[in-house]
């Protein structure tokens, strides 16, 4: 028996909106730790890892570890039917072939339940080691989204370079080139407007903008994004999910031909 009650149901809607274009089908794993997911995109270039810790739920009952195979676009369709302020409860029996999403309006005057068919998904679980990064950039998530969107009108790839000057995002395409430099800046009115660059060593890596743009679908989840870079490792683009967890996108770099 599984029963997870999330008061901030809107968070789950935002999580699904940030996943559904990257991944078609995925197993949600429920354990005492929390509600998590690890999935790759269909071309095995990017990987997403979601964790919503059990403490973040108002009620968290998970009698035994359970893996729920879901089609993410169908799950997003169902969650779209919940109000942004609704309380969302996810329920499933141990041997269930379906999952129930219950939506309660904040003043309890409307209660809806949606039942979605589960699916068997054969997915490969990858072991992600803890890594030391050469550079970690924290910046406003909306700024990062704007940069990725702007650069993708000019080129297909972005070179992200971190030096002591700051972080540089560069692209080139048929019409020309573009470089955007963001400097370390903590003299801002609000902490979420800061750009914080921690650099052990300079690093420069090339990534497909199509994937970066897909990751920025998570922008509504968090004011800040963390971009962790190391030579010859996938970049990690992380958004916090309130105080209860995170969504991390890993993207393999491109190498010179």
């Amino acid at each position: 028996m599984l029963e997870l009650r999330l008061v901030q149901g809107g968070l789950l809607k935002k999580v699904l909106d940030s996943l559904k274009d990257l991944v078609n089908d995925a197993n949600f794993d429920c354990s005492a730790t929390g509600f998590s997911l690890q999935a790759m995109d269909s071309s095995h270039v990017a990987l997403v890892a979601l964790l919503l810790r059990s403490e973040g739920f108002e009620h968290y009952r998970c009698d035994r570890n359970l893996s729920l195979g879901m089609n993410l676009s169908n799950m997003a369709k169902m969650l779209k039917c919940a109000g942004n302020d609704d309380i969302v409860t996810i329920k499933a029996d141990d041997a269930a072939d379906s999952v129930t999403f219950m939506f309660e309006s904040p003043n309890q005057d409307k209660i809806a339940d949606f039942d979605m068919k589960l699916m068997d998904i054969d997915s490969e679980h990858l072991g992600i080691p803890e890594a030391e990064f050469q550079a970690i950039v924290r910046m406003p998530s909306a700024e990062f989204a704007r940069i990725c969107k702007d650069l993708s009108t000019i080129g297909d790839t972005v070179v992200i370079s971190v030096t002591k000057e700051g972080v540089k995002f560069s692209t080139r395409g048929d019409i020309g080139t573009a470089n955007i430099v963001c400097r370390h800046n903590t003299s801002v009115d609000k902490p979420e407007e800061a750009t914080i660059i921690e650099m052990e060593e300079t690093v420069s890596l090339t990534f497909a903008l199509r994937y970066m743009n897909s990751f920025t679908k998570a922008t509504p989840l968090a004011n800040q994004v963390t971009i962790s870079l190391s030579s010859d490792l996938p970049v990690v683009v992380e958004y916090k999910v309130a105080e209860m967890g995170h969504i991390r996108f890993y993207l393999a770099p491109k190498i010179e031909e």
């Binding site: 990017a46 490969e124 072991g127 790839t157 996938p234 393999a252």
Partner: peptide
């Protein structure tokens, strides 16, 4: 531009 690497090259299967 460039060769796209596969994410599974970096992480072990568990």
């Amino acid at each position: 531009r460039g060769i796209q690497r596969n994410i599974t090259e970096f992480f072990r299967s568990t």
